[in-house]
């Protein structure tokens, strides 16, 4: 398939947990001499596989700490995955924490040049675009002001105005679809729609479920670093609302244990996140009850393929 522009296969991202970590040479020496303590690890992303087609807009939703920002950084090649492979085609522009690359001691113009070049825009192209960027951000009269004296809204506007000049093939957005005051939010949102129309692939992380419903072609539910489900935004948003949003520890343990027992008995393996979330969703929706689970498992392709 030639129109796939992002392909993730079995991506894992493992972090060493901070509180046990040694951050100075001194600490390292002392602990090595004393005795080595096994370092604790944490999987921020587990076994993530999906692909995105050219021009598609994919929404990613999930609770705080579910790994959304980490996943975006892996897609943008900012964080290397601990395992698995990722392939991307075309120029990726991250809209993560917009303006985090700004240097407060530099003026607006100097920051545009610096930030633009870091985003991979050609030097002479930025120079030409500076008036346009300032006009878009409505900051012409502040062009020689150091950005540390900017308000946070002005800061965000300048960053947004610069970043949209980068002509990405893939735009990766972490909650910053529109910035600034109401009027500017409208303007930046319209710009975003223009970019979308130009067949730009967009990955959009947000807590705004309405945005996902009205803008995205497909959505992913991230749950504790796992893909909880992929598919139609309506279904994914509903699943998120029903199962995850109200209680991130969605699995009432007793229920989870019982489902786990069925899995071991019938499929000879522990339940996977997608399956588990789905059972919970359907139970909460009243479509099925716990007693239906054995027959669901026995009718699954997996069971049929094991038992002929």
């Amino acid at each position: 398939m030639s129109d796939v522009v992002i392909e993730l296969k079995n991506i894992y991202k493992t972090f060493k947990l901070n509180y046990k970590e040694k951050t100075t040479v001194y600490e390292t020496l002392v602990t090595t001499v004393k005795k080595k303590s096994p370092s604790q690890t944490f999987n921020a992303l587990s076994n993530i596989s999906f692909s995105v087609k050219k021009g598609e807009m994919l929404g990613i939703i999930g609770h705080n700490g579910s790994g959304k920002s980490t996943l975006l950084k892996v897609i943008c090649h900012i964080l290397p995955p601990s395992q698995g492979s990722i392939k991307t085609k075309g120029k990726i522009i991250p809209f993560l924490q917009l303006g985090s690359g700004f240097n407060g001691d530099l003026t607006a113009i100097e920051n545009i040049k610096m930030y633009g070049m870091i985003l991979g825009i050609q030097k002479n192209k930025i120079a030409k675009k500076i008036p346009e960027i300032l006009e878009y951000a409505e900051l012409e009269s502040f062009k020689d002001t150091k950005v540390k004296h900017f308000s946070s809204g002005m800061f965000a506007r300048l960053a947004f105005a610069t970043a949209i000049q980068s002509e990405p093939d893939i735009l990766v957005i972490d909650e910053t679809l529109s910035v600034g005051d109401l009027a500017f939010q409208q303007k930046s949102f319209n710009t975003f729609l223009d970019i979308k129309k130009q067949n730009t692939t967009i990955i959009y992380v947000t807590h705004n479920l309405d945005d996902v419903l009205r803008l995205c072609d497909r959505a992913i539910l991230l749950y504790k670093g796992f893909v909880g489900d992929v598919g139609d935004p309506k279904l994914i948003v509903d699943k998120y609302k029903t199962v995850v949003e109200k209680s991130p520890d969605y699995i009432e343990e007793s229920l989870a244990k019982e489902i786990g027992v069925y899995y071991q008995k019938i499929l000879k393996r522990p339940p996977d996140v997608i399956g588990m979330l789905d059972h919970f969703y359907r139970i909460k929706k009243g479509e099925i009850s716990l007693n239906d689970i054995p027959s669901i498992l026995k009718n699954s392709e997996e069971y049929v393929s094991i038992h002929g």
């Binding site: 090649h77 990726i92 985090s100 991979g120």
Partner: peptide
């Protein structure tokens, strides 16, 4: 750190 974590170069 800010720019390293938010842009790829």
């Amino acid at each position: 750190g800010g720019i390293v974590l938010n842009a790829f170069f």
